[in-house]
């Protein structure tokens, strides 16, 4: 059946293909400029809080390339899971648009995806990024321990998600960019942690005001290193 369809599509498609030059887009979670290693305890926040990360997972979606304000390329609808825990960091291929001045992407998945029922691939609920007690994807999972947290396990757990007003946690990030063969985007985790006090707010598990503040800190947590 599949084979028949493949033959059919080959018959209907043209033989001509065009070579498209591609650029690799890489996201690297960093802490004060250093690439983060899981289970490494040498990160220090605010000169006093020792931080160790045990899990970092996030979604990037709706990537767009712009020439000033004009969209010149879009992979609208595509969602990429960055699963730092299992080393599944996708290398995203984007076309090398020389006139590109700006890149835009979403941290998380938009509300349309959140109301679309069961989805597959990176959005399959088996990926551990779907809430089960209420509907909705987790846009960012950030877990670890800190010496400054008073609880016995010293754990922090930030599950940032939610899609409906007033707790929509999807954030669109726009960065100036010069096109090159490889674009490395730093996801500056230290900037997110600095936005709230880890000693008092160490668990966010649902869409609420704390999650909102946390999500807003994401807006300033990406930079391009070229």
């Amino acid at each position: 059946m599949r084979i028949l369809l493949i033959i059919a599509s080959l018959c209907l498609s043209s033989h001509e293909t065009f070579a498209v030059e591609n650029t690799s887009l890489v996201f690297v979670p960093t802490f004060q400029g250093r690439a983060i290693q899981l289970f490494d305890s040498s990160y220090i926040l605010n000169k006093k809080d020792t931080i160790r990360f045990t899990s970092i997972k996030w979604y990037i979606s709706n990537i767009q390339l712009l020439d000033d304000n004009r969209i010149i390329w879009s992979d609208k609808g595509n969602v990429h899971l960055f699963d730092f825990d299992s080393n599944k960091i996708p290398l995203i291929e984007i076309p090398t648009k020389r006139n590109c001045t700006t890149i835009r992407f979403g941290l998380g998945v938009d509300s349309l995806v959140n109301v679309s029922g069961a989805l597959g691939g990176d959005l399959d609920p088996t990926k551990g990024m779907y809430w089960t007690w209420q509907s909705g994807y987790i846009n960012l999972k950030l877990e670890g321990t800190s010496s400054s947290i008073k609880s016995s396990k010293k754990e922090f757990q930030y599950h940032i998600g939610g899609y409906s007003f007033p707790y929509n946690m999807y954030r669109t990030i726009t960065l100036p960019m010069v096109m090159s063969d490889k674009i490395i985007i730093h996801f500056e985790i230290d900037k997110i942690l600095q936005a709230s006090d880890i000693t008092t707010l160490h668990h966010i598990m649902s869409p609420n005001n704390n999650a909102q503040t946390f999500a807003d800190s994401l807006l300033l947590s990406f930079s391009i290193k070229q």
């Binding site: 029922g117 779907y130 089960t132 509907s135």
Partner: peptide
């Protein structure tokens, strides 16, 4: 709490 029949079963599971 659940917005779509497809994801309903996740809650009891």
């Amino acid at each position: 709490a659940v917005n779509h029949l497809d994801v309903q079963a996740l809650a009891p599971i």
